[in-house]
Design a protein around this nucleic acid. Structure first.
Lengths: 340, 340
DNA sequence: TTGAAAGCGCTAACAT
DNA sequence: ATGTTAGCGCTTTCAA
């Protein structure tokens, strides 16, 4: 590091210049009570004059916290990064933190080397807590962090009995209400395009679909369920397959709006009118729907609230560490727009 | 897993368990030479047994570096975040760092409070260097960092005489070659949709446009230049305006492919055939063009190389701090696809 | 090849 | 209200 001549100004130098003791300076920069106003001023003047900035490493080492939290994105498929879903989460997490003294650190974990580096970084005490997005079922990262007592919050669950604190949307309920809506509006043969069956979120949405059918006394058929991978392309292919093998369907619930958009295209390409012949509802990965079809009815996830809640849980856990993990499931909302 | 008994294991505890001194353990974890092989093994065993991870704050304080760099995104308009341009840069920077011990920290700076927080974070010694993306002309952040001797690299310039080390694409040359291509392929009345005139990058691309016209001996008209804001919408509006006030144009150079996409739509809406009636070239914010029009001819920026170069410059500067700032301008490439 | 000891700059008891 | 002091966990001379 360049400076090291005398190095950057230290608290001690400030104290000397202000003619006070170290601890007084410490009190001033930490807004502690019990400093005479004139003294405080003198110290502040010295700080300004020297351009003093506290050494965070020293502060952390001396027992206080790192005043930083990490928002980790574990995504091998890098293109996900640009998705509105993520940028929306990042934005809301940033918003929730903007009032605090806590610095938000976004980090990427793609390879095992990066995973290892992150663990060392976090365990090394550089952050006070970690939020993880898009964690896959087999990923041990959350456990590696939580087990060491580092406050950790997950966005979504890896499975039905997730042990780490998490915030999730009510995927089952959301799917159920979407399908119920289709049935309520006169559709009978409602199909579904699911997400990858090894993802818990996809399982939940499929469960919701099934529950809605069951509650309405509709006998679903195996041919009404096709698996996609959340991408628009897969939605297109799945829809084409549905048209082929179950021409009777008049409603579709897609486990993501991206797939819903693909399905819409496939329907139109096949000459089916939407929503007259077939109605489509997608599970909303948020503002994306607006880019694809502004009239697509969707199940909206409360992304803003998810971000805020993650931050709240994390800060709470940082404040007073608990052994009890907490799980929050947020309600979704069915947004009915023109074309469903 | 038991923890927090006395806190996480320290180097000292490792030393005790291994039956050696502190410094020996330090040497082992830092891969320093001069440790007998059997000793090294013993230490490693102790480390594993205790699950020891070095305290990074202590390490940093003791004089070594933070082993982290920040990639800062200063973007009030948050929606930019999802742009392929940024995700591509983030990806390539991450790639360039993946082999190193350096942790990449992405941070967002939207408000002044966040700006301040970042400065304190960086000056506080938590990162060894900073890369900044999408810095606006009036932003003093780069200076605030560079002036304290913190290695700093900019993506793009704030003005013609940028003082902080930067990496930029050859915007003038890229624009020139795009327009030259249009002229070479028989277009005469080539218009341009510029970016915001207060952004240096937009100025450069406009300059390139003008230079190309001049070199070809084509007399440009004021009505051939319309200002957009890099968004697709603005491209659409600008094109509509061009059609209106300069119906003679048969070629358009847009300062971003996003605007080019908007322009394309406007042209088609107006019944102009593309590229038969009007050819369009956009300055590529990278993979985006593929989402809009796979046949759109574009000026491609070497984003991968930009990211790598930023990292290289930063690491070099971290290695041995220089007073001399360095500027790198990378060549662009005209990618001719079907429809130009 | 190894250990002992002196800080790195700060916070937080504890004195005053 | 303020100063003194003892660490926080590590790296790094300097001896041995």
């Amino acid at each position: 590091m360049l400076r090291r001549r005398t190095g950057p100004p230290t608290l001690e130098e400030v104290a000397a210049l202000a003619g006070v003791g170290r601890s007084t300076v410490s009190r001033v920069i930490n807004d502690a009570a019990g400093v005479k106003d004139t003294t405080r001023r003198a110290v502040q003047r010295a700080i300004a004059e020297l351009g003093y900035v506290p050494n965070l490493a020293a502060r952390t080492l001396a027992g206080r916290r790192a005043d930083a939290v990490a928002l980790v994105m574990t995504e091998p498929d890098w293109r996900q990064f640009g998705e509105p879903f993520f940028s929306e989460i990042v934005r809301s997490v940033g918003d929730a933190l903007t009032e605090t003294e806590v610095q938000l650190l976004l980090t990427l974990v793609r390879t095992d080397a990066e995973r290892q580096r992150l663990v060392e970084y976090a365990r090394g005490g550089r952050v006070d807590g970690v939020m993880l997005m898009s964690v896959h079922a087999e990923d041990a990262l959350p456990d590696m962090l939580a087990e060491v007592g580092l406050p950790t919050v997950l966005l979504g669950r890896r499975s039905g009995d997730e042990s780490v604190t998490y915030v999730d949307a009510d995927n089952v309920g959301g799917a159920r209400s979407a399908v119920a809506h289709l049935l309520d509006t006169g559709r009978r043969a409602v199909a579904t395009i699911t997400g990858p069956s090894d993802m818990y979120v996809a399982q939940c949405r499929l469960r919701g679909y099934r529950e809605a059918l069951e509650r309405a006394g509709v006998e679903g058929r195996p041919s009404w369920t096709v698996e996609g991978d959340f991408s628009a392309d897969s939605g297109h292919r799945a829809m084409a397959e549905l048209i082929e093998r179950a021409p009777e369907i008049d409603g579709v619930f897609a486990a993501s709006d991206t797939m819903a958009a693909g399905a819409l295209n496939a329907l139109r390409a096949a000459g089916r009118r939407v929503p007259d012949d077939v109605a489509v509802i997608g599970f909303d990965d948020f503002p994306l729907a607006q880019h694809t079809d502004p009239k697509l009815t969707t199940v909206r996830q409360p992304l803003e609230e998810i971000g805020h809640t993650m931050v709240r849980l994390l800060l709470e856990e940082m404040e007073e560490p608990t052994v009890a993990w907490r799980h929050v499931i947020l309600r979704t909302e069915l947004v009915v727009r023109g074309s469903a």
